[in-house]
């Protein structure tokens, strides 16, 4: 009892990071429980009858001192679009904390975190929470073009951040899988993490699997409830159909039935 919460948060900031990504900072008037990288919140956007269900967002940053929680919203459909139009001072109901988090690295681990789109949010959260020296943390962020990237300079102190863009406008030209850290150095990592579009996660998983490296990915199947009662967000796994919201969203690639 009392392990999950439903409560209102005050929108304190809504910052456009680029054309399609927004950073939304939310303040709770009750003390935030512990939230780990990979866990998510389910937000009631509550703006129209067309947006009946909540929308899940991976947690980006948590400030326990000021009870602030932030998310990165990428416009994908009608729900996320509406959410990015929210104004500071408005309130949002959140169900939280939901889902299982990424495996926190061991003390001497060398890790690679690969993020695409808004998938960079939990990757940066993980880098920050890993407690590892920055030289043990490589982060590769992929985007279509430099205009789709967000400013992550404040995260450089947590790891070595690299970019890839499909048009070559910055960083390595191509997909994240074209980056030399993935192409040539996969074997040096103890743990690889990925969050982003399915095709990207599958490609990263395939490389990690070939290299025999531990790899976790975060799925975002469509869900209605977010806490394991509707059974809509299922993913076929070696343990049968599992709810992404409660048994995930983070899965070890060996448990998934991906053809990789």
């Amino acid at each position: 009892m009392g392990k999950k919460l439903v409560s209102d948060f005050l929108v304190t900031e809504n910052i456009a990071l680029n054309k399609t990504n927004f950073l939304i900072r939310l303040a709770s008037d009750i003390k935030l429980p512990s939230i780990s990288p990979g866990q998510f919140v389910n937000i009631d956007i509550n703006k129209s009858n067309e947006i009946f269900l909540r929308r899940p967002f991976s947690v980006f940053e948590v400030d326990y001192t000021n009870n602030l929680l932030s998310i990165i919203v990428k416009i994908l459909g009608r729900g996320s679009k509406k959410l990015t139009e929210i104004q500071p001072g408005e309130k949002l109901s959140l169900i939280y904390p939901l889902g299982k988090h990424f495996t926190i690295p061991d003390k001497k681990d060398k890790i690679l975190a690969v993020g695409g789109g808004s998938g960079l949010a939990p990757m940066l959260f993980l880098a920050r929470e890993s407690g590892l020296p920055p030289e043990n943390v490589d982060i590769v962020i992929g985007a279509r073009s430099v205009a789709d990237l967000v400013d992550v300079d404040s995260y450089r102190k947590y790891g070595n951040i690299q970019f890839t863009t499909e048009d070559g406008s910055t960083g390595t030209k191509g997909f994240v899988t074209d980056h030399h850290l993935l192409k040539n150095e996969m074997g040096k990592y103890d743990k690889v993490y990925a969050c982003g579009p399915d095709a990207m996660m599958k490609a990263v998983s395939s490389m990690a699997k070939k290299a025999g490296v531990f790899c976790e990915v975060s799925l975002e199947n469509l869900m209605a409830c977010g806490f394991g009662v509707c059974l809509c967000c299922i993913e076929p796994t070696v343990k049968g159909n599992l709810c992404v919201c409660t048994e995930g969203p983070v899965f070890n690639i060996n448990d998934l039935k991906w053809q990789i």
Binding site: F52, L222, P236
Partner: peptide, 25 residues
């Protein structure tokens, strides 16, 4: 006995509601 239910996707949001096709998992 155990039922795996239907294949994903099993849910679609509709105006003021939703469709589900869980299939008694």
């Amino acid at each position: 006995r155990n039922r795996d239910g239907n294949l994903y996707p099993r849910m679609a949001e509709t105006p003021s509601g939703m469709l589900n096709a869980v299939g008694l998992q």
